[in-house]
Amino acid sequence: MPPDPFYWPRHGWVRLGEGWADGLRSPLTAAELAEVADWCAVGRPLVIARGRPGDGAGELRLGLATPDKRRIGLHVAADAVAVRLEPLRLAEAVDAAPEAWRPMLVELVRRAQDVGVTPAVYGSLAWQHRTGLGYVRPDSDVDLLFVPRDRWQLDGLLDLLTAVGDGSPRLDGEILLPDGAAVAWRELAGRPARLLVKGPAEVSLRDLPSVLALFDRENAA
């Protein structure tokens, strides 16, 4: 059984507690173990990643990304976590962005909130805000996470992103579906017959009407 997608949402963050290595469910190399230990010792967080089929209940997949684009994946027991953090709100990360990006990001937050959606951010800008290290480059995209609750919010959000998404910075990211899975906003905006959907522990193809129907049910609830 994969972790609860709402309690342990992908793109959320954790800080591991003392003795976290005792909770490892898959081994790390000695070099990886030392790097993760140093990372955690200074209080830096890890990001919650998608689980894998066969992961047990109470197990998490976590990621450590370095500014030079190295990646370390961890498979740990959830009780190794000392602090759990929600996905980072974009409004909180604006000051970590290059100065030239900030007016656009502030306006995006405002316009998204006008349709009832509060944007979150993951990827390089989120890592830069969370750690104080230099992840963002002039050509970096901004990876965003949106959680619309109904079709009105979804349609307004997709109209907004289609209008501004190819500006500077370029906007990428995902729409979180009411069932806890996610789909790339660019793919959903294109209204293809079938969509690549990322679940808590798997990736699958779904037809467009079934995805949109999730928001119709949310609206009717």
Results as ranks from 00 to 15, higher is better:
residue 34 A to S: 14
residue 54 G to I: 02
residue 89 R to Y: 06
residue 107 E to W: 13
residue 146 F to G: 05
residue 158 L to D: 04
residue 55 D to L: 03
residue 64 L to D: 00
residue 74 L to K: 09
residue 130 R to M: 14
residue 33 L to S: 14
residue 119 P to S: 10
residue 114 D to T: 09
residue 155 D to A: 14
residue 59 E to K: 05
residue 36 V to E: 00
residue 94 V to H: 04
residue 158 L to M: 02
residue 86 E to Q: 15
residue 57 A to M: 06
residue 82 A to F: 05
residue 127 W to N: 04
residue 28 L to E: 00
residue 160 L to M: 03
residue 61 R to D: 03
residue 130 R to H: 13
residue 175 I to G: 13
residue 93 A to N: 11
residue 122 Y to N: 05
residue 116 G to Q: 09
residue 125 L to Q: 07
residue 34 A to M: 06
residue 71 R to H: 08
residue 132 G to S: 09
residue 137 R to N: 04
residue 84 R to F: 00
residue 175 I to A: 09
residue 91 A to M: 06
residue 77 A to V: 02
residue 81 V to Y: 06
residue 54 G to E: 09
residue 54 G to M: 01
residue 34 A to P: 13
residue 173 G to W: 10
residue 127 W to V: 06
residue 53 P to Q: 05
residue 88 L to C: 06
residue 30 A to R: 15
residue 169 P to T: 02
residue 40 C to M: 01
residue 122 Y to F: 15
residue 118 T to Y: 07
residue 46 L to A: 08
residue 105 L to H: 09
residue 68 D to N: 07
residue 47 V to P: 01
residue 92 E to M: 07
residue 77 A to S: 15
residue 69 K to I: 00
residue 122 Y to E: 03
residue 131 T to G: 03
residue 160 L to G: 10
residue 98 P to G: 12
residue 53 P to I: 01
residue 154 L to N: 04
residue 71 R to K: 15
residue 104 M to Q: 13
residue 91 A to Y: 08
residue 168 S to L: 09
residue 172 D to V: 10
residue 172 D to R: 14
residue 61 R to W: 02
residue 151 R to I: 09
residue 168 S to Y: 12
residue 74 L to Q: 07
residue 59 E to A: 13
residue 46 L to R: 12
residue 44 R to N: 01
residue 92 E to W: 05
residue 104 M to L: 09
residue 90 L to E: 04
residue 86 E to N: 14
residue 103 P to G: 03
residue 147 V to S: 14
residue 85 L to R: 14
residue 88 L to A: 03
residue 91 A to H: 13
residue 137 R to H: 10
residue 31 A to M: 02
residue 42 V to Q: 15
residue 56 G to H: 11
residue 30 A to N: 11
residue 101 W to C: 00
residue 165 G to K: 13
residue 105 L to G: 01
residue 172 D to E: 14
residue 128 Q to D: 06
residue 155 D to W: 10
residue 170 R to E: 10
residue 142 V to H: 13
residue 104 M to I: 04
residue 60 L to G: 04
residue 32 E to I: 08
residue 63 G to W: 02
residue 152 W to C: 00
residue 104 M to N: 03
residue 82 A to E: 15
residue 44 R to A: 01
residue 82 A to R: 15
residue 30 A to Q: 14
residue 80 A to F: 07
residue 100 A to E: 12
residue 58 G to Y: 08
residue 135 Y to N: 11
residue 90 L to N: 04
residue 76 V to W: 03
residue 163 A to T: 15
residue 93 A to C: 08
residue 132 G to E: 01
residue 128 Q to N: 04
residue 156 G to I: 10
residue 47 V to D: 01
residue 146 F to Y: 13
residue 167 G to Y: 13
residue 159 D to G: 15
residue 170 R to P: 05
residue 28 L to M: 05
residue 163 A to G: 08
residue 84 R to P: 01
residue 163 A to W: 06
residue 169 P to I: 02
